[in-house]
Every structure is written in structure tokens, then in C-alpha cells.
Design a protein around this nucleic acid. Structure first.
Length: 110
DNA sequence: ACGGTGACGCTCA
DNA sequence: TTGAGCGCCACCG
């Protein structure tokens, strides 16, 4: 069956979030908070995660490059293990489910 | 309009 | 350092 039966309707805000994520270069990561802040609401980190969960553009939008503020992997539609793999593949060191030196490679929108 | 949900963040013990 | 609790926001039914 077609997995894309459910047409995911993205709001303007969600689209903005996804767009910002697409700007993250390979080998870099950002945080949900930073992302939300760039989208206009620094306190909407949670909502930002929700937007990523709806991401219908799998590889197009590198949602796996978005992690928690403390460097934790966070969540991923395909499983945290997969997310971790993607990060390591792109040169992002991950140790015990957390990005090593996330502050150094973190992509900031300011 | 209201209440519940979730890929979060921060504080406290 | 790790875990539990509370607060934040946008989205959905």
C-alpha cells in the first residue's frame, strides 16, 4: 500500500522549520531550541520536534541533524539508532547516544 | 473553544 | 551525572 496515503498538511510555521533544517550543512548539527528560535519561537522547541516528525521529505530535509540542547540524539521517525548512524556517517561523533562536542559543530542561525 | 499529545528545555534532588 | 517534575509551544480531534 501507498505509505503516502495520508497527505501531510504542513502549516506555514512547520514549513519554515523544515526549510531551516534543510540549510544545515553536512557534518553539522543544530538543536530543537535553536531551530525553534530561528523559526520565531525560542520556547517552541517541542513544537519544532513535532514539525520534524511530520517531515514528508525524508533525505531532502536532514532532520537527523537536529539534536537536543544537551547533545542527546533525541528522537527519530526511523529510530534513534538509525539517526545515530546517519550522524556518524556524516562525520559527527556520537557517544552513548549523545553528540560529542555538539557546541563546536552546532549550526547556529544567528 | 477545549483538552490531550509529543523527535523539547530547564531546574532540582 | 542521572532521573523526575514542571513548563513551553503548535497541532489535532
Amino acid at each position: 500500500m501507498n505509505r503516502s496515503n495520508k497527505k501531510k498538511v504542513l502549516t506555514s510555521w512547520e514549513k519554515k522549520v523544515l526549510r531551516l533544517v534543510s540549510y544545515i550543512p553536512e557534518g553539522r548539527v543544530t538543536t530543537y531550541k535553536e531551530l525553534a528560535g530561528a523559526a520565531g519561537d525560542p520556547l517552541a522547541a517541542r513544537a519544532a520536534g513535532n514539525a520534524l516528525n511530520k517531515n514528508p521529505y525524508s533525505p531532502l530535509v536532514p532532520c537527523h541533524r537536529v539534536v537536543k540542547s544537551d547533545g542527546a540524539i533525541g528522537g527519530f521517525a526511523g529510530g534513534r539508532a538509525v539517526k545515530k548512524k546517519w550522524l556518524e556517517r556524516e562525520g559527527v561523533p556520537v557517544k552513548k547516544g549523545k553528540v560529542v562536542g555538539v557546541e563546536k559543530i552546532m549550526y547556529k542561525y544567528k
